[in-house]
Design a protein around this nucleic acid. Structure first.
Lengths: 106, 106
DNA sequence: ACTTTATATGAAATATAATTCATATGAATA
DNA sequence: TATTCATATGAATTATATTTCATATAAAGT
């Protein structure tokens, strides 16, 4: 790790350390969606989705595109795919019991 | 992303969303160290390092080895290297201004 | 056995982040 | 231009995480 990357890493991972944002990313991996569509898919309030999308946009984990009054968001495949692959690999190799490191719930 | 990975991702990234833990990982990338050595290197209290190392150990981001009364910790290179590479790549490509996504401090 | 050194733990205090609710902005349409 | 639909924002509340301080455990050395 290059020196001085710690603050960027912190922002980066803090962004991802939230179940709503992760669920949103998961949805957007399938297909681009609007805020309202995401809210419906995740069973959450519109304002909550909007609040949570904001940091994802700011750090370019997702990209937004205006379509009239809708805002359609798509995932940054390059980064997010790599991250999820890394998590899957880690879970497979280093969390043998699957839920071992999840005691106490998510 | 496989379905149902969200809770694991959450734990995974929450673990990394802390400057003390990131700084500890950064140190351990150079060489394995004991708790006291880390505390000295990072200018932090021993108990704080110990508290922060715990979740890293539980999720196997680092591995511990007893050497007498010292506990020497080494980093899980496979996972942590991949993560830091991903952050570097993302920062290079998607944070062109360097600190753009850091306004407001770390 | 006593003292020192290394580490871990518990619990209170503090700091940070997430959620909710009310409301604002802005684009489309009647 | 009034109304509806889509999204964003502010601020208060609530929830979570971090830090600190005191203390416990445990290995080594005297």
């Amino acid at each position: 790790m290059k020196k001085g990357l710690t603050p960027i890493c912190h922002r980066f991972f803090t962004n991802l350390s939230n179940p709503t944002r992760l669920a949103a990313l998961e949805q957007l991996m399938n297909k681009p969606m609007s805020v309202t569509e995401l809210a419906k898919a995740l069973g959450q309030e519109q304002s909550m989705i909007s609040h949570n999308l904001k940091p994802l946009i700011e750090c370019n984990f997702i990209f937004g595109q205006k379509q009239g009054k809708r805002h359609v968001y798509s995932v940054n495949q390059e980064t997010v795919n790599m991250l999820f692959k890394t998590v899957e690999n880690h879970a497979a190799k280093f969390c043998p019991s699957g839920g071992k490191c999840l005691k106490g719930g998510n």
